[in-house]
Amino acid sequence: MMKDVIEEQLYRLEILPLSNIKWKKFDLCLYSDSSNQEYLNAKKKIRECVPKGTSGVYILTNKEKVLYIGESEKNIHSRLRRHIDKIYVRTDSRSDFFKLKEHQGLLSIYYWSLPPNLVDKRKNIEALLTNALEPEYKKWDLKNQMDRLETAFSEIDQGFN
């Protein structure tokens, strides 16, 4: 129910739909097993499409499915390049999500360069969009948190037996 109220407000404020004029969009084709040149091309495309110093929020989608929602106070350009690194070069646990085949391929990237009077509201906008659009990353992260909690409780139970 709250999700519906938030989504309705996002439409009323013209933050949604992503097809509105506020959002800029470009596409990247990313596969973790592709060549180093494709990795460099993806980073170049971000450089060309997102001006350095752009503040705001961004959304990564794959086949109309929202994968990830993020924000940056000073440089969406850098944040997006770090997401590309998660697919190609990073090995930390956060990169595992982006290495899953169903989260690769043709990705559409939307970003909204916020006007100066809204930059300090970017985290609020990100949180509301996350609630309304339910990105796959949040579901994946919550499942991993639940799995870790289950493991911890299981270890406690084993200690009592």
Rank of each mutant, 00 (worst) to 15 (best):
D92Q: 13
W23N: 09
Q104T: 00
N117C: 07
E136K: 14
V57W: 00
S154V: 01
L13A: 12
L128C: 05
R82P: 00
K101H: 12
I76F: 01
Q145Y: 12
M146Y: 12
S78R: 13
V119I: 15
K25I: 13
A127C: 11
E155M: 04
T61A: 11
K52L: 04
D4R: 13
N124H: 03
Q145P: 02
Y88Q: 03
E73F: 15
N62I: 03
R79L: 02
L128W: 03
P17H: 14
L149P: 05
K24R: 14
K74T: 14
Y68H: 11
T61I: 09
E71W: 11
T130M: 05
K86N: 13
A132K: 01
I59T: 01
T151C: 08
T61Y: 02
W140C: 07
M146Q: 10
I21Q: 15
C49T: 06
S113K: 08
E134D: 12
S108N: 14
R47Q: 12
K52W: 06
K65L: 00
T130P: 00
V57H: 05
K143R: 15
K52A: 14
E7H: 02
L60V: 08
S108L: 03
A42P: 04
R148A: 14
E8A: 11
I156R: 10
L142G: 09
S154N: 12
F153Q: 03
Y58N: 01
P51G: 05
L100T: 10
S32H: 08
H83I: 06
L129W: 04
T91S: 15
C49P: 02
F98N: 05
V66H: 10
S19F: 00
L60K: 10
E134I: 11
N124W: 11
Y111N: 03
S72F: 06
K86F: 09
Y11E: 14
P115K: 15
D4S: 13
S108M: 06
Y88W: 08
R122M: 08
I15T: 15
L133Q: 10
W112Q: 05
R47V: 04
E126P: 02
V119H: 06
A127E: 10
K65S: 07
I15V: 15
R148F: 12
Q9P: 01
L67V: 00
D85K: 01
L80V: 04
K99C: 06
Y137N: 04
Y58M: 08
S34R: 04
E126I: 04
N62A: 00
I87G: 05
L67E: 03
G159A: 03
L100E: 15
K143P: 03
S72K: 11
L40Y: 04
Q158I: 03
Y31A: 09
S78F: 12
K123V: 11
D4L: 07
T54S: 13
D157I: 09
C29W: 01
D4Y: 06
R47E: 14
I109K: 01
S35E: 04
E71P: 12
I46Q: 02
K44G: 02
L118N: 08
E73Q: 14
N144M: 12
E38S: 03
I46P: 05
L18S: 06
N117P: 03
E73P: 12
L142W: 13
K45N: 05
L16V: 13
W112N: 09
D33M: 06
I125A: 03
H83K: 14
K121P: 00
F26M: 07
A127S: 15
P135K: 02
A42T: 03
Y31D: 05
Q9E: 07
I87N: 00
T91Y: 12
R148G: 06
L16E: 10
